[in-house]
Design a binder for these strands. Structure first.
Lengths: 283, 283
DNA sequence: ACACCAAATGTAGTAAAATTACAACTTTGC
DNA sequence: GCAAAGTTGTAATTTTACTACATTTGGTGT
């Protein structure tokens, strides 16, 4: 795909002069795309047809087509592909790979979100008497984050890490309460039990989990996120980010539903934090 | 920057014929980059110089240069632009906007990360006797997440929400301990104080924060993330995601440094979770 | 309504760029 | 060391883009 990578890989197939062209291009690709075939030939100290042959060897139609491909490779943000980390990767490689595959996963997640469910859940949340966020393991920090967000809305919001506290909290639920349960797999036993407890106490249960899972089956509403997880790392990574982004979506929907006046309230909450901070020069 | 957006925006400045060209290009940009000025002129039903003038109006050197810009816009599809949520947005719009601007922010964050610092911090973490993760407010959940990740590595790892516990923990630090402090603004007073306490007890302090902030100045190493935050919402959103992704990067670097054998250990940790879960059909 | 001016568009010629065909030169194997 | 295959360069050809100028269009003031 990426023509720059292709140049480095095909290196063996190049002839001596073609390699000269490759070097010049790799050394300064940004200049290459703005040069004519003549100037590039001069820079590489070869003839114009050689440059042309070089382009064709890379399966492009000719020099202008090659420049197009090169320009696309140089455009920042190259396609976000889910690239797995390799054992031999250096810091530069794995950093970029992680960022890129996170972005790729978000794109997949975005497409799997059902906006109708989002809308109804936002409805529920705005009307809720009490909102609870529960998750375990890696999803606990997502629930924790949701607490932080919804707490600012001046809504009774609950979050516990302890499963006994979670159970007790759900026991005391009543009509009008919303319980949001977060789990990537949707197979965590105690979370499924909590869903059952909450529902039998007339709470509405929303699951941010994988569709068709045991947990999903116990929920009134399911916000399913299909996120490809790199299982080689044995750690939840992309799923968490997708869950958090979904929390952001819900929080945003919430504030929009509440209107402008409510937004000012948020600003006040933020302003009270000022005392705990060093002022920014110029504030 | 993005020439496609530029075309849509500049629409008013175009003349009648130029608008015809714009339409044809917007309708099928992929074809446009592979066409000559003559064929594009014929498609738009205008003359060749008109196409050329159209290109110049968009501040390009001429038609070939314009094609280059267009190709870059089409690459990757740099479709991920930071789009602010509008009050009138429906669920579909704000959901997509949040996902897209999160992705855009990750791209910005990726470019702002200094991989050399990443490498040194990974070094530190692999050699650390004890690792602490502290953050407050929105960053608390990031620290919480880091705990969950590094806990799997069978390394002494510490995390507290309570600032007094954080302080006491740092008081007991010694040489070889690493304290990771997370804060978007880097202006939270108590976190800055914690950095000072930790350093005066010979711990190495790593900041995941904004470069040049009061917190950054107190750290031994700073992993600075420059993330544009949509301040209209009065909530930290993108910054959190970028921080989490950076934690993933560090965790990944950690496992890579520890080698293959260590990876198997991670698998064992994951396998012990199985008892708490409903089996997946086919496991 | 007409003349006039400015902006917009097109025509035709020109310059530049890329490609092709072919010749000269290397390299490789026997 | 010579032939054959492969590589590179020169020069001609073709394609492409650009410029200068002519024509048309649309609008403004008398």
């Amino acid at each position: 795909m990426n023509i720059l990578e292709k140049i480095t890989q095909n290196n063996a197939a190049f002839s001596k002069s073609e390699r000269k062209v490759a070097e010049v291009i790799l050394a300064n690709p940004q200049t290459a795309i703005h040069s004519s075939i003549a100037t590039l030939a001069k820079m590489s100290d070869v003839s114009e047809p050689t440059v042309n042959r070089f382009c064709r060897r890379l399966d492009t139609k000719g020099f202008p087509d090659f420049k197009l491909h090169l320009a696309q490779s140089l455009a920042n943000g190259t396609p976000y592909v889910n690239r797995h980390v390799d054992e031999l990767d250096g810091p530069e490689e794995y950093t970029n790979k992680i960022f890129e595959s996170t972005m790729a996963s978000l794109e997949v997640a975005r497409q799997s979100v059902d906006v109708n469910v989002v809308n109804r859940v936002v409805d529920l949340l705005t009307q809720a008497q009490k909102i609870s966020f529960f998750g375990l393991g890696a999803s606990a920090s997502v629930a924790h984050d949701a607490l932080n967000k919804f707490f600012r809305f001046n809504v009774p919001v609950v979050y516990f890490e302890d499963i006994l506290m979670q159970r007790m909290s759900c026991m005391n639920c009543s009509d009008g309460d919303v319980v949001v349960l977060i789990s990537h797999t949707g197979r965590t036993k105690s979370l499924v039990e909590i869903a059952q407890i909450a529902r039998s106490n007339d709470a509405t249960v929303v699951g941010i989990t994988s569709g068709g899972s045991p947990l999903a089956n116990e929920c009134n509403y399911v916000l399913s996120l299909e996120v490809p997880e790199d299982t080689d790392m044995y750690m939840p990574m992309a799923s968490r980010i997708a869950q958090l982004t979904l929390i952001d979506v819900l929080a945003t929907g919430f504030t929009l539903r509440r209107g402008n006046k409510f937004r000012e309230n948020l600003k006040r909450v933020k302003d009270t934090l000022r005392g705990s901070r060093y002022e920014k020069r110029g504030d």
